[in-house]
């Protein structure tokens, strides 16, 4: 028992392989400080071992460069900051100056506010007009065509000023073909000019007559005799027209009827003059 104990108490050999690397199974010892002297003859471990990047060397070489760069960057930042601060101070000074000049009731402020207000309003209106302008033109043209086209019942024409004078308008259909003329005349009636439109087609026949404005007497044509009776008589005929000769006057309105008849004749004469000079 004692011997066993002594045997057991004897220090054994230390378990080697304390530094035994984990890569042992691969058969290639890691080139650490080879404690176990894994080299075949004690010389430094030879490749092939995995060559790690020489970080230390890299760091040694690039260190100073990075330092310098860092210092340079910091310097750059400081300079930029200083410049920005100066710019900011200048802006503030300008702002203070402007604030002093353009105080609430100072003359420059009065002028500025009014000028700015009008300019902005003008700009706004300009924008609105670019949007609505075309539509306004279209609406006007449509209204114009409708008025001129009243003497061409049943047709849809577009009217443009003709080359034949101020009061003659050419009516063209959808294909652009000339369909007829609308002529504006204003013969003198009983108490003032009677504004009329006379429509003439290409066969030089009157297509229709309409009265646009008149000041004859109060309530003249309240019953609409002109539109539904008198004026219809001119349609489809060639002229020249005369009361009593195919045209019946409105009873009790001879002078007005005469004036309108004269107006139709005038229109046809105008057309004749212009088309066959």
């Amino acid at each position: 028992m004692n011997e066993d104990f002594a045997e057991a108490a004897e220090p054994r050999e230390p378990v080697s392989g304390v530094t035994e690397p984990a890569s042992e199974p691969s058969g290639e010892p890691v080139p650490d400080e080879p404690v176990t002297g894994s080299g075949p003859d004690g010389a430094p471990p030879k490749p092939p071992y995995k060559k790690l990047p020489d970080l230390k060397g890299v760091m040694m070489r690039t260190g100073p460069f990075l330092n310098a760069a860092g210092k340079g960057l910091r310097a750059a930042v400081r300079v930029t900051a200083a410049v920005l601060r100066v710019i900011w101070r200048i802006l503030c000074a300008i702002g203070r100056f402007l604030h002093r000049v353009f105080r609430k009731d100072s003359i420059p402020n009065l002028i500025l506010v009014l000028a700015l207000l009008t300019a902005v309003t003008a700009a706004g209106l300009g924008v609105i007009y670019t949007v609505t302008g075309p539509q306004i033109e279209a609406a006007r043209a449509e209204a114009f065509d409708a008025a001129m086209g009243e003497v061409f019942p049943g047709l849809e024409l577009a009217f443009v000023k003709s080359s034949f004078g101020e009061n003659v308008y050419e009516g063209r259909d959808a294909d652009g073909n000339l369909a007829g003329f609308s002529i504006l005349v204003s013969p003198d009636g009983y108490s003032g000019p009677i504004g009329m439109i006379v429509g003439v087609d290409l066969r030089r026949e009157v297509t229709g007559v309409t009265v646009v404005s008149q000041r004859e007497t109060r309530g003249f044509d309240a019953k609409g005799t002109m539109q539904n009776g008198f004026l219809e008589q001119f349609a489809g005929k060639n002229g020249p027209f005369a009361l009593g000769n195919g045209i019946d006057a409105i009873s009790g309105a001879t002078i007005s009827s005469e004036a309108v008849t004269q107006g139709v004749n005038d229109a046809l004469a105008l057309l004749d003059r212009e088309i066959q000079p």
């Binding site: 209106l125 609105i128 609505t132 302008g133």
Partner: peptide, 10 residues
């Protein structure tokens, strides 16, 4: 004026 334009147009 803006209202006038709008009315004339529409």
């Amino acid at each position: 004026t803006a209202v006038d334009y709008l009315l004339q147009a529409f």
